[in-house]
Structures are given as C-alpha cells and as structure tokens.
Simulated scan of single mutants.
Amino acid sequence: MVTVDGLLRRENELAYEPEILAIGPYHHGKANLEMMEKHKIRYLQMYLVRTNESSVDRFVNAMQDLEEKTRKCYAESIVLEKDAFV
C-alpha cells in the first residue's frame, strides 16, 4: 500500500480527498461519504451470495491477522479501535 507524503498532499489536497467512495479507515466517518457506506455493505452481501459464503467471518479473521501490518502502511496514526479498524 502506498501513502501520500504530507508535502505532496499539500501541493493539491483535493486530489487526495475522495468525493464519493473511500476504501479503508483513513476517511472513516466523513459525512460526505456516509451514503456509500450502505452501498459497500450491500456489495459485500451480494459478494457473499455470489461466492456461496455464509458469513464474513473468514474475511474478518484474515483482516485481524493483517491489522497491525496494515496500520503501518499509513503515514499518520489511524485512531480507531481494533474491531472498527478491521
């Protein structure tokens, strides 16, 4: 995963701000992206049906194993509890 350096981000901050969809915890909780959160849940449910998965447990467990490594990919600290981050 690649993070955007602060100096580069300051050059054109809007270029690095999502307008509709954010993936990952960096923009978590921003009001302008809230609408898409419902769509992400719906897409996840559709994926589970399409792949004959009965729950998200397998994916959550995989992300729990990667949580610490993933946090290190961000230049800034992500202030979320472990479960919220995963």
Rank of each mutant, 00 (worst) to 15 (best):
R50L: 15
R50I: 07
V79F: 15
L48F: 09
T3Y: 13
R10F: 09
E81A: 07
E13Q: 02
V2R: 13
P18Q: 06
D65H: 15
M36W: 03
G24E: 00
M35H: 07
A22C: 09
L14I: 10
M63K: 14
V60Y: 13
L7D: 15
M63E: 05
E67G: 05
E81Q: 08
Y26N: 04
L44N: 02
Y26R: 13
L80Y: 04
K69T: 02
L33T: 01
T70D: 13
P25I: 05
E37G: 11
Y47G: 14
E34Y: 12
I78T: 00
E34H: 11
E53G: 09
I20P: 00
H27G: 06
F85I: 01
T3R: 08
E11F: 06
K69G: 03
R42G: 13
R71V: 01
Y43G: 04
L66D: 07
R9H: 00
L33A: 00
T51W: 15
V86A: 00
N32V: 08
K30W: 04
T3C: 14
Y16M: 05
T70F: 12
I23Y: 10
P25R: 14
L33D: 02
D65S: 15
A31E: 14
V79P: 00
D57L: 08
R42M: 15
F59R: 06
M63L: 05
C73T: 04
L80V: 03
D57P: 01
E11Y: 09
N12P: 02
R42S: 15
V4Y: 02
A75Q: 09
E67F: 02
A62V: 07
